[in-house]
Write a protein that binds this DNA or RNA. Structure first.
Length: 531
RNA sequence: GGCCCGUUGGUCAAGGGGUUAAGACGCAUCCCUUUCACGGAUGAAUCACGAGUUCGAUUCUCGUACGGGCUACCA
């Protein structure tokens, strides 16, 4: 009597679990970053990657990287590999891509070329698009003909299309003849003459457009490649993308994409859109130029233009930690509402939410960016810094052989380094005696008494068996008190002897790490130099 | 020019009808530190403007101004 009831209950549970699972499959989150491999990876691009990544991780979804290389004239060798290197550096690697694989490939649009034409043709057949045979010269002619002060950039739209050479204006037989002759042509979307297209953006709410003022965008180019507009819609559908995050600069062409979705795959199937606020420079959208002009990086990593050989410095080489780079990017347009500003990647995955992304653009502040890096250098354990600092020291000709010393040095100096490159100055002298000294800090005030003092110091330090900072300091101060000189008057010269300049941690801390031998050697060397 | 999006200190920003309008960066001054940092303290905003709604608008509505984006067979 009791048993059957129990079995029924179990069955119910199994059913609901199954139901939930299939619903989860249906609503599977799939997002994508779709860069065009034409040059360096802009910090705005990395932020888009980040938001995609965070959203995917948060929803147990997949993050896809699709290469949008439909413009063959803009092909730049190496750019694609460079993008992957950047993503690897920041630790935001895709689940599916050209190199990560996946079952929705190919992930490079140029390899999907054959796919797009049928969709464009279908649109023509259904009256949503048309063939256009206008040559570049004819387009140019149209633009200059309609150009006025009131209308500085005439569009190819419903007001002019009947006066152009396209399948809407020409006779059926004429069109067929041209097509049979393989005449160069494009396929353009036929924008409705007056319709309001609206959609709900996840960041800015309802946005609406009047199709009358949107032009008949080219969907399929004369070379058979799709334009961005056709390709995004087709690929987002085929790759089952659920949410699209892209820059605000795409907002004006959103109605084209909405319409294409409606015509091709149905509005219900459309992914949700989120147009991210722009990252601004001192004047407008942040550009590579701004970086060069104001002296801060814009690209994630160094990028050398293969055509011109021009090098653009990246955040990595400038001395940024990937942790800091991600952190500062996340906060450029988003915050969790609390006072917290330092977030690890895991915390971001946990706390990020689209609802808290701003709609207004944010001006990039390099000073604040450096602050984030400083915070992360302070926060990170030496183990997280070791390899990167070795690299930095290596770049200035210092090879680290004593790993233990490196760890001690890092712990001692990291709080005074804002960029990783600062370690060259702040840590370098521990491994290599100063090559030159800040003589101005010593010479003007140097005298016989001081010279004598240091000789005596040498005599006191040399025979010491233990070598602890505290003891060295006490001994030093005891000896100074015997003189009629201020402690500072002698401490600064000692610093210069050991460090070379007026910087670094406490002098005796330095001496401690340097060891007796090296400390004595440096003092003696300097004294000789002054003779 | 047209269309779209936006507007809280120099910058990033919290707050969304009644608040002394958070916090951070940067800046300035001071304290700590016999270097430089770190750390601590203090200082600086009539919430773009004008109407409206309201007992009351930074917060809601509408205009204006300003800023930005788009306006290619580029993405």
């Amino acid at each position: 009597m009791y048993f059957p009831a129990k079995i029924i209950v179990f069955n119910k549970i199994d059913l609901s679990v199954l139901l939930l699972r299939s619903m989860a499959e249906l609503n599977k989150v799939r997002v994508r970053f779709a860069p065009s491999p034409t040059g360096g990876l802009h910090l705005g691009g990395v932020r888009t990657v980040l938001y995609n990544y965070l959203f995917a991780r948060q929803h147990n979804g997949r993050f896809i990287l699709r290469i949008e290389d439909t413009d063959q004239s803009r092909y730049v060798p190496g750019a694609e590999e460079y993008i992957f290197n950047c993503l690897k550096w920041v630790g935001l690697e895709p689940d599916e891509s050209v190199i990560h694989g996946g079952s929705f490939g190919p992930y490079r649009q140029s390899e999907r070329k054959a796919l797009y034409r049928q969709y464009a043709e279908q649109l023509v057949k259904e009256g949503y698009a048309y063939y256009a045979f206008d040559t570049p010269a004819e387009l140019e002619e149209m633009r200059s003909r309609y150009k006025t002060d009131q209308n500085p950039s005439p569009q190819y739209d419903h007001t002019v299309r009947s006066a152009m050479r396209n399948s809407l204006a020409m006779s059926e037989s004429e069109v067929q003849k041209l097509l049979a002759e393989n005449a160069r042509h494009v396929i353009r979307i036929k924008m409705p003459e007056a319709e309001t297209v609206r959609f709900t953006d996840m960041i800015r709410g309802e946005v609406s457009f009047n199709t009358a003022v949107v032009d008949d965008k080219v969907l399929l180019k004369a070379d058979g490649m799709p334009t961005y507009h056709l390709a995004v819609v087709v690929d987002d559908h085929l790759m089952e993308i659920s949410h699209v995050f892209r820059g605000e600069e795409w907002l004006p062409s959103a109605p084209v994409h909405i319409l294409l979705w409606r015509y091709l795959f149905g509005a219900e199937a459309m992914p949700q859109w989120a147009h991210l606020p722009l990252i601004l420079g001192p004047n407008g959208k942040l550009s590579k130029r701004d970086g060069a002009k104001y002296g801060f990086p814009v690209f994630a990593m160094n990028w050398t233009d293969p055509a011109t050989g021009e090098l653009t410095e990246g955040f990595k080489e400038k001395g940024f930690l990937p942790e800091a780079f991600i952190n500062l990017l996340a906060l450029l347009g988003w915050n969790d509402g609390s006072e917290q500003e330092i977030f690890s990647k895991d915390e971001l995955v946990e706390k990020f939410s689209l609802e808290r992304v701003h709609s207004g653009g944010a001006k990039f502040d390099y000073e604040k960016a450096k602050w984030f890096n400083h915070e992360w250098i302070k926060k990170l354990q030496v183990s997280g810094l070791r390899e990167q600092v070795k690299q930095v020291l290596g770049n200035s000709g210092i090879r680290v052989t004593d790993e233990q010393l490196l760890d001690n040095v890092l712990a001692l100096v990291k709080e005074r380094c804002t960029l990783l490159t600062d370690f060259a100055e702040q840590a370098g002298f521990f491994f290599k005696a100063p090559g030159k000294y800040d003589m101005d800090a010593v010479k003007p005030k140097w005298n016989e008494t001081k010279q004598a003092f240091f000789l005596k110091l040498l005599q006191a330090y040399n025979p010491k068996d233990s070598w602890k900072p505290d003891e060295l300091e006490t001994l030093f101060k005891e000896m100074v008190t015997a003189q009629k000189i201020k402690v500072g008057e002698l401490m600064l010269p000692l610093r210069i002897m050991l460090v070379g300049g007026k910087f670094g941690p406490g002098v005796f801390q330095i001496a401690g790490l340097l060891g007796k031998e090296e400390t004595v050697l440096r003092i003696r060397k300097f004294l000789d130099l002054l003779q």
